[in-house]
Amino acid sequence: MDAPEIPGGRFEEHRTQLRAVAYRMLGSLSEADDAVQECWLRYSRSDTSQVRNLAGWLTTVVGRICLDMLRSRTGRAEVPLEGVHVPDPVVAPLTGEEAAVRTEEVGLALLVVLDTLSPAERVAFVLHDTFGVPFDEIAPLLDRTPAATRQLASRARRRVRDAGQGGERPDARRQREVVAAFLAAARGGDFDALVGLLDPQVTLRADTGGAGSRLVRGAAEVASQATAFRSAAMHAVPVLVGGEPGLAAVVGGRAVSVMSFALVPDGHGPAGAVRELNILADPRRLARLGVAEVLGAAPAERGH
């Protein structure tokens, strides 16, 4: 006789995976948690005794929930300035061999690209390309045919590829070297050194949550932000941002900024140059994400 199922036990086995799906869909950790909680409620009210592939069933359920949440964003004032929004970063300490890229996380540059997709494109792409859900299972969520769903994912894939995302991540050692060089140049206010690290078409996206948010393009224009970079760099330490080397600045026990770096991949320009900088400097969001707590008591002091 089979042992009785522990309430929620089967669901808990899949919670981490479901949160990863929701985070890629939404780019918000709090909304991802909300989506997973709603998925749990629907699971608890459903008879899943005949479901052979519970992981697949739960993934499609959380996919539908995320689709509804993405659609509900239309018309809501969530972006501080048009085109300037940095998704929630997943920040972790960086020490020695722990700098290896963690495959279960996703970089901010990819999340920024995903934010440009329509809800249907994002759902089709994330569920199929990242989590391997068949198109015939995604199609009912979108009220499309499998063929139309395939086309949605294909369009999204091209957008991701054209943005230099979606391929293999750059070498972690090279990423760490670039971040260290950027930190040194920023602390020294070295304009020429900063320009030398940047792709000519580099994009800087700084999200402060309001006034001061900005979108800057071009190596010289981005390097001209040297004063702001220097101020943050004096309190910055290397961290992992979405599993990739980045920087976080903490002052007086409060996080003031998180910066992620996206490098030019092979075949897209000067390999290894910084092609995108994403900075989250919204104090309310950083506090909600608990960045300072993740990094410990005095990360700023360790940076000197």
Rank of each mutant, 00 (worst) to 15 (best):
I6K: 09
P7G: 09
L18C: 13
R19V: 14
S28G: 07
L29D: 02
L29E: 13
V36I: 05
L41Y: 11
L41E: 15
L41F: 10
S44M: 11
R45G: 04
T48C: 12
Q50P: 00
R76C: 03
E78L: 15
A92Q: 12
P93M: 04
P93Q: 07
E97M: 03
V101G: 06
E104D: 13
V106W: 01
V106D: 00
G107W: 00
G107A: 15
L114D: 01
T116M: 03
L117K: 06
P119S: 09
E121W: 06
R122L: 04
F125R: 00
H128D: 03
P134W: 02
D143H: 08
P146K: 02
A148M: 09
Q151A: 14
S154P: 00
V160Y: 03
A163L: 08
G167Q: 08
R169T: 05
D171F: 02
R174K: 09
R176N: 01
V178M: 11
V178R: 12
G188R: 09
G188A: 06
R205M: 05
G209H: 12
A211G: 10
V222G: 01
F229R: 01
L240Y: 01
G243E: 08
A248L: 09
G253M: 13
A255D: 14
L277F: 14
A281F: 11
P283A: 07
L295A: 13
P299Y: 09
E301N: 03
